[in-house]
Design a protein around this nucleic acid. Structure first.
Lengths: 216, 216
DNA sequence: AAATAAGTTTAGGCAAACCTAAAAAATATA
DNA sequence: TATATTTTTTAGGTTTGCCTAAACTTATTT
C-alpha cells in the first residue's frame, strides 16, 4: 500500500458520506488537489486491487476491504493528532499537516504502543472518534450549532472544517472542545447567531455555526 | 529533499569515515541495498544540487551543505529512536526500522517539540550522540572492547553493529548501555575474550568485542 | 607492459503517480 | 429531440528512482 493509495482511500471514505451513490472523479480530484484524469487512473488501480467499487462514469465507493484500510489510516491519523496535541503542545491548527505525514508510517507495534502511551483515547483533538483496531467507530449524535434554536445549549464536541484559518478563529474566540454554547439570538436575515460562551457573548456567522458540532 | 536523497546523504555520512578519500559506488550500493548504476545516477543529481563532491570513478564525499542535511536527518533518526525506546517500550533491536521511516517526516516544530518532550537527550539508545540543531556532534572517545587488555575495565557506551541479531544477543547477555565490563582473559588463538559483567563471567567472540564500545 | 579482472558509467527500460489535450459519454438546455 | 455543456475517460508525456546489459576506466596480475 503506497502513501498515495492510502490517501485516495481516506479521501473516498470522507467524501462518500455526502455522495452515497458514488464519489465523482471531479470531486475527488478537487479534494486531493489533483486532476480528474489522475484520479481515474488511480481508482482503476484500486478497483483492480479489490479495494473499491468503480463503475466508469458513475463514481467510486469503498468496498469492505477498502473501508477497513481507510479506517486504519484514519485511526493512525487521529492517534498522531492526539499525540501532537497532548504531548507536544501543538495547537489545533498545527496538527493536521504533520499527522498527514505520520499516518503513513508502517508499524503495527508503533500504533499499538502509541495508543497505550496516550491512554487509549477515544476521540482526537478535533472531537472526531478514533476507530479501534478492527475499524469500529463510535458514533456520537451531534448537531451543528446552526440547528439549535435560541435558548438551547450544547457542548462543543467537534468541528467540520479543519482549515487552519477556521481553527485559529476558534482559538481566538476561546471555543474549545467541551465549551458550553448557548444560543442567545438568531439574526434572521443572514442566519448569524449571538451565542454565550464562558459568560461572554459573541456573534457567529452562518458559516461558523454550520462548522461547529455540539451535543445536547 | 526526497526520502531517497536523504537516505543517500545519511549513508554517505556513515561511510565516509572509513573511506575518507571517497565512498565508492559499489560500497554505497551495498549499503543501500541498491545497484551501482542507480547510485551513480543519484550522486550525479546530488552533485548538481551542491550537496556532495563527486568525481567520476573516484567516489563521492559530502560537502558542508550535504553534511548539514545528513546531520539533521541523523538528529531526527536518533531523537525518534530515543522516543521509541523511552516512551513506547520498544526494545533495542525493534527501534531501527521504524526510526528509518520517522526520520523523513518534515516539520521543524515537530522535532523541536520532540526534543523538549524527551528532555533534550544527548545520546540515543545505542549510545550514539544526537547532533544539535546546528549539526554539532559531541565526540566521545570510545574504544572497542577488543582494544582493552586483561585487567582493564570500561563502561559500555555504544555499539557498532545495529543488526537485530546482534542487539538481541546483547539483550540476552544483559549487556546494556552503562554496563561495566572487565576483561578477565584474552584467548590468544581466536582473540575471544572472557569478560565480567554484573559479577557474571561470559565469553565474547572477537566479532562481538569489536562491535561493543566502552569508555574507560 | 600487456592481459585480465574489478569497478564505474552510460544507454535504454520500467513502474508509480502525476500532467495536458483530445475524444467519448452523460447531463442539461433550447 | 437535437444541440450544447459538463464530466469523464483515453492517449500520450514527464519526473523520480530504480533496474539490466553493454561500454568504458582503473587496478591487478602475470
Amino acid at each position: 500500500m503506497t502513501f498515495s493509495e492510502e490517501n485516495y482511500l481516506k479521501s473516498i471514505y470522507s467524501l462518500q458520506k455526502d455522495s452515497p451513490k458514488g464519489v465523482s472523479t471531479t470531486i475527488l480530484a478537487q479534494y486531493l488537489e489533483s486532476k480528474p484524469a489522475s484520479v481515474t487512473e488511480m481508482i482503476k488501480k484500486l478497483d483492480e486491487k479489490g479495494l473499491v467499487l468503480y463503475q466508469p462514469y458513475q463514481g467510486v465507493l469503498l468496498n469492505k476491504n477498502g473501508e477497513l484500510v481507510a479506517l486504519k489510516v484514519i485511526r493512525k491519523h487521529r492517534l498522531w493528532e492526539t499525540f501532537l496535541a497532548k504531548k507536544l503542545d501543538f495547537s489545533w491548527d498545527e496538527i493536521h499537516d504533520v499527522a498527514e505525514q505520520l499516518e503513513h508510517i508502517k508499524s503495527d507495534k508503533l500504533i499499538k504502543e502509541l495508543d497505550r502511551f496516550l491512554g487509549f483515547p477515544t476521540h482526537d483533538p478535533h472531537g472526531d472518534p478514533i476507530p479501534d483496531e478492527q475499524g469500529n467507530v463510535i458514533k456520537v449524535e451531534k448537531k451543528q450549532v446552526s440547528q439549535l434554536i435560541p435558548g438551547e445549549t450544547g457542548t462543543c464536541v467537534g468541528v467540520n472544517d479543519t482549515s487552519s484559518s477556521f481553527l485559529q478563529f476558534l482559538d481566538q474566540q476561546n471555543i474549545k472542545l467541551g465549551a458550553v454554547i448557548e444560543i442567545v439570538h438568531l439574526q434572521d436575515f443572514d442566519k448569524s447567531m449571538t451565542v454565550r460562551i464562558d459568560g461572554r457573548e459573541l456573534l457567529l456567522s452562518q458559516i461558523a455555526t454550520e462548522n461547529i458540532y455540539v451535543k445536547l
